[in-house]
Simulated scan of single mutants.
Amino acid sequence: MLMLWLKAFHIIFMVCWFAGIFYLPRLFVNHAMVEDTAIRAQLLLMERKLYRFITPFMFLTIGFGIALASLNWAYYSGAIWFHIKVSLVALLVIYHFYCGRCIRLLESDPESRSHVFYRVFNELPVLILFAAVLLAVLKPGA
């Protein structure tokens, strides 16, 4: 029963984290496109608040994932699919912190990157999500 509760919370916090990680770069796209300083200031405020809001979800997702894995570490430590999934989560954590860097970059130099860069950047977590979910559900090689 404990495992089901841990899994439920892991999924809930992962969904919350991804909701923010999908929306934040969309704000970057808008920020890079607009020229009005008042609108840029409003977007920057939204970006900062969203980033601060979703960061705890990242830590909770990871924490509940570690708790889940610790319940059956003998299995997970030898499962190749699990190591790949953990690597994808590590990439997503890097992506998350890079979003924080993008906020600071947009604050200091809003025209340093084009909206096209942020549109492409926005697609990366989608690929990670697809791969991580497929690995967790299909468990290839298990």
Rank of each mutant, 00 (worst) to 15 (best):
A69C: 06
L129K: 01
F117Y: 13
V89F: 12
S114A: 08
R26T: 03
L2F: 15
L43E: 05
W81D: 03
C99F: 00
L50V: 06
F59Y: 15
M14F: 13
R26A: 05
L6K: 08
L45A: 15
L6G: 01
V133F: 00
N72V: 05
M46Y: 14
I66K: 00
M46W: 14
M33T: 06
L45C: 12
E35W: 07
V34W: 00
G63A: 07
L45H: 14
T37N: 11
Y118G: 08
K85G: 01
L92N: 10
H10Y: 04
A38Y: 07
S112H: 11
V86Y: 06
L88T: 01
V86R: 08
S114W: 08
G100V: 10
R119L: 08
A142S: 13
F59Q: 11
A32F: 02
M14H: 03
A132E: 01
Y98L: 07
A8N: 12
D109K: 13
L105I: 15
V116C: 05
Y95I: 00
L44V: 09
D36C: 10
V137G: 07
L44C: 09
L68S: 10
A131S: 14
G63N: 05
F22P: 01
F28A: 07
L60Q: 06
A90D: 04
F130E: 01
R104F: 11
I84F: 09
Y75F: 15
I11G: 00
K49F: 11
I21T: 13
F117E: 04
R48V: 14
G20K: 02
R40H: 05
I128T: 05
F121C: 05
R40C: 11
W73L: 02
Q42R: 15
F28N: 06
V116L: 13
C99S: 11
M58D: 04
E123G: 02
I84T: 04
M58E: 09
F59W: 13
A19N: 03
P110I: 04
A67E: 10
W5H: 12
Y23H: 11
S114C: 10
L129M: 14
P125R: 03
S108C: 10
G78V: 02
W73R: 06
F9H: 12
M33A: 15
G63S: 06
I103Q: 00
F53P: 07
F97S: 05
V34I: 11
A8F: 15
L27M: 09
M33C: 12
P25V: 01
T61M: 14
R52A: 12
R48W: 05
Q42V: 13
Y95R: 05
L4V: 13
L44K: 07
R104Q: 12
G78I: 02
H115F: 15
L44D: 12
C99L: 03
L92Q: 11
S112Q: 14
L27K: 10
I54V: 12
R113N: 10
L43H: 08
L68Q: 08
E123S: 11
L124H: 04
W5D: 05
I11H: 07
L127I: 09
I94C: 15
I128M: 08
R113K: 14
L43C: 07
Q42H: 12
